[in-house]
Nucleic acid binder design. Structure first.
Length: 423
RNA sequence: GGUGAGGUGGCUGAGUGGUCGAAAGCACAUGUUUGCUAAAUAUGCGUAGCCUUAACAGCUACCGAGGGUUCGAAUCCCUCCCUCACCGCCA
């Protein structure tokens, strides 16, 4: 959520910076400005009337104590009360409307975010490793995995539906080994505290991180309890500190959480995403940081480096893409995507998206810290996958496939997996 | 799910209709004093909104949440949430 004061004082600057995103938000900004005036006018009037009523009510109390008749003055105050109700209704309605509008405005792209219109303009920042060469035609993970009995799409479709998968045998074991490998790496080497959160959250948590109200069609909802299945651990973990005022010395907060993620992927059907690449449910280890405004940009670099370390240790070729203003997420101020090479696909797969949200999420969830001067300020929040499991699974299986269809397990993963190869 | 007891400021804890944003204590901050640690003493010490300002100040709201009664609610009524205890059920 953007600061209404900033919008009020620099409307043109705000519009200009939002114009670099995809979508036209100038009309919403104008509506916010108009409703802001309505709201404040009504609020001021209400407060004046409340002040009058408070003063007169006190006088009534004193008069009654002295045994005086107060019926006339009580009638007068009753009139003030009904006016307060009327103007208050107006003020509250404007307040709700203003907040709704503000929740629909995306974050301002950071100055360091490259300007561009679409994904084609995302600059490549760096590349690690090289594409592996094979003296045979590398196979797709669905072919390899199904031949080895690791993954079963038919079973997933049978018990739940399409885009759900059953891992079995060595497939399930590989998934579990990867989860443990990732959590161990981030908690013991990178200083993150492990979190295992609920997978169902209240709507206000999704508002806090930005999925609601605008992207409600992408999350699974349990209407009887008004709870949502998390689309990413970012939601429960960042919201751990919602409505809190942290002490400056607590920062940065660093959490690593493994959770399944649930996404409806509405509108994504038939987009040529075969196999494990786009599922309604997938595992992910998420990294979340809560920082001061001064350190967030440096923390984004270290967060990204922490995620990259995963691929380096597993020996998987990848590249870092920086998202341009036309392609960054709704709440993001600056984002790096990590894309791993999948030989069977002949393409790079996004396995991590590392973003700083500035104070955008913190405002939505009222997450603050007390600075050295004792002032309460909004924190900055960051998160990135460290990493998504299903696509990591794909890259691993496809990269380490052998001519005979077996899969070699990279050195770093062997102690977690408990074997050197599959098949 | 049932019954009972509770939810007040960072913490403890008063307050059952009237100048209560809320006593007191602790913690914290600052000053003073006894040449240090410590003690004593004074002052300050919640969050947000509105209106203003060079700054201060002022006003309004907030005592789990939301409604209601009233001229006036932390205090009375209703609904809900949470915590604790016991019972039932259960991985």
């Amino acid at each position: 959520m953007l600061d209404i004061r900033l919008i009020r004082e620099n409307p043109d600057l705000i519009k200009q910076r939002l114009a670099n995103r995809s979508g036209d938000f100038a009309p919403i900004v104008d509506e916010v400005l108009a409703i802001d005036i309505t709201r404040r006018t009504a609020e001021t009037e209400r407060q004046k009337l409340q002040s009058d009523r408070n003063r007169i009510s006190k006088e009534i109390g004193i008069a009654k104590k002295n045994g005086q008749d107060t019926s006339a003055i009580e009638t007068e105050v009753r009139g003030i009360g009904s006016r307060i109700d009327e103007i208050g209704f107006e003020a509250d309605a404007a307040d709700v409307r203003q907040r709704d509008l503000l929740l629909g405005i995306p974050n301002l792209p950071h100055d360091a975010c490259p300007v561009g219109h679409s994904a084609e303009e995302n600059p490549e920042i760096r590349v690690w490793g090289t594409k592996p060469c094979y003296d045979f035609q590398p196979k797709d993970h669905t072919v390899l995995g199904q031949a080895l009995g690791m993954i079963d799409f038919e079973a997933g479709a049978k018990i739940t539906g399409s885009a759900f998968v059953v891992y079995r045998g060595t497939g399930a074991r590989l998934e579990r080994a990867l989860i443990n490998f990732l959590l161990d790496l981030h908690t013991t080497q990178h200083g993150y505290t492990e979190i295992s959160p609920p997978l169902l959250v209240k709507p206000e948590c999704l508002v806090g991180t930005g999925q609601l109200p605008k992207f409600g069609d992408q999350v699974y909802h349990c209407p009887e309890d008004d709870l949502y299945l998390i689309p990413t651990a970012e939601v429960p973990v960042t919201n751990l500190h919602r409505e809190e005022i942290l002490k400056a010395e607590q920062l940065p907060v660093q959490y690593a959480a493994y959770t399944p993620c649930f996404r409806r992927e509405a509108g994504s059907a038939g987009l040529g995403t075969r196999g494990l690449i786009r599922m309604h449910q997938f595992d992910k280890v998420e990294l979340v940081k809560i920082t001061t405004p001064e350190t967030s940009m440096a923390e984004l670099e270290s967060l990204t480096a922490n995620a990259e370390k995963v691929l380096q240790l597993l020996g998987l070729h990848y590249r870092i893409i920086e998202l341009c203003t036309g392609d960054i997420g709704f709440g993001s101020a600056k984002t790096y995507d990590i894309e791993v090479w999948a030989p069977g696909q002949g393409t790079y797969l996004e396995v991590s998206s590392c973003s700083t949200f500035g104070d955008y999420q913190a405002r939505r969830m009222n997450l603050r810290f007390k600075d050295a001067e004792g002032k309460n300020r909004f924190c900055h929040t960051l998160n990135g996958s460290g990493t998504a499991l299903a696509r990591l699974f794909v890259a691993l299986v496809e990269t380490y496939q052998q001519a005979d269809g077996s899969i070699l397990i990279p050195e770093a993963l062997r102690s977690h997996f408990g074997a050197e190869k599959i098949g």
